[in-house]
Simulated scan of single mutants.
Amino acid sequence: MGKDSVQGESYENRADVPMEMLAEGNCSLILSDVRFRDAGIYESYLVVGQSRVKNQILIHSVRLAVVDHKHIQSVESGKDLILDLYTNQAKMLVFQQEGTPEWRVLWQRGQDSGGERWVEERGRKLVVREVVTSNSGTYRVVDEEGLTLSTVKVSVTGSVATTGSEVKEKQISLDSGKVDAPSLCLTVVLFLSSHALIHLP
């Protein structure tokens, strides 16, 4: 609406059509901090006609799919494992040791870890300090709804000896339906840390 714009409640501070692009005839929508609930169909319309009689002309339609990050990582025993959080949506890090069915909580946003300081949050990353062979397995970062934002399969190599007792972790059972990323029809793939540029000519 001229220089004014209105954003939907769940898109506040995340959706933008830059005026400098619009002045050149490009009405592409930039969607930041993409999340699973953003998946769906986006359509742009040109509104024409007088004040009382207006018509909407479809310009473009895009089906957006959102998927989680998947990585395989190898780290030497005794060194730190660094995991990207990608987004502020990250609420919890869970771990499944190789060969076991259980998932354990290693980190939760906003909760004090007490004396267990071997997992640290540093900006947009988590650091698992001085890993050992038993740290091999699958690491998942999930959001507040239990949906997987990233999955990293980690193998610990080398034979560096460790000292001291291993830190005991709180064990939880996770509903597999909530841990796995939703199955979406993939047309446009976006990573959660990226900006989505939906080109609407």
Rank of each mutant, 00 (worst) to 15 (best):
R37L: 11
K91A: 14
S136I: 06
P201R: 14
G137M: 06
E102W: 02
Y86T: 06
A196L: 13
E102R: 08
S134K: 12
Q108E: 14
S32R: 15
S173I: 11
T138L: 11
D4E: 09
Y86W: 11
Q89L: 10
V160H: 09
R124V: 04
P201I: 07
H60W: 04
S176H: 09
I172N: 04
R129M: 10
Q171F: 06
G158A: 05
D180C: 05
L192Y: 09
D33F: 05
S28H: 01
S74G: 07
E144W: 05
G49F: 11
Y45T: 01
D4N: 05
G8Y: 04
Q111H: 13
I30F: 15
E98V: 04
E9G: 00
T133L: 07
V189A: 12
E102C: 02
S113F: 06
L147S: 08
S173V: 11
L197T: 13
Q171V: 15
I198T: 05
L149Y: 00
L93D: 03
S28Y: 04
V47F: 10
V127D: 01
E20G: 01
L186E: 13
R52K: 11
S159H: 09
Y86H: 15
H195E: 15
L200V: 11
R63Q: 14
K70R: 14
Q50H: 05
D4W: 07
L81G: 01
E144G: 01
G49Q: 10
V62H: 15
D175T: 08
L192V: 12
G25C: 07
W118C: 10
E145P: 00
L58W: 07
E120H: 05
K54P: 03
R124Y: 08
A196P: 03
D143R: 01
D80V: 08
L184D: 07
Q50C: 10
E12H: 05
S194D: 15
I82K: 10
S183H: 13
S28E: 02
V142C: 13
Q97F: 01
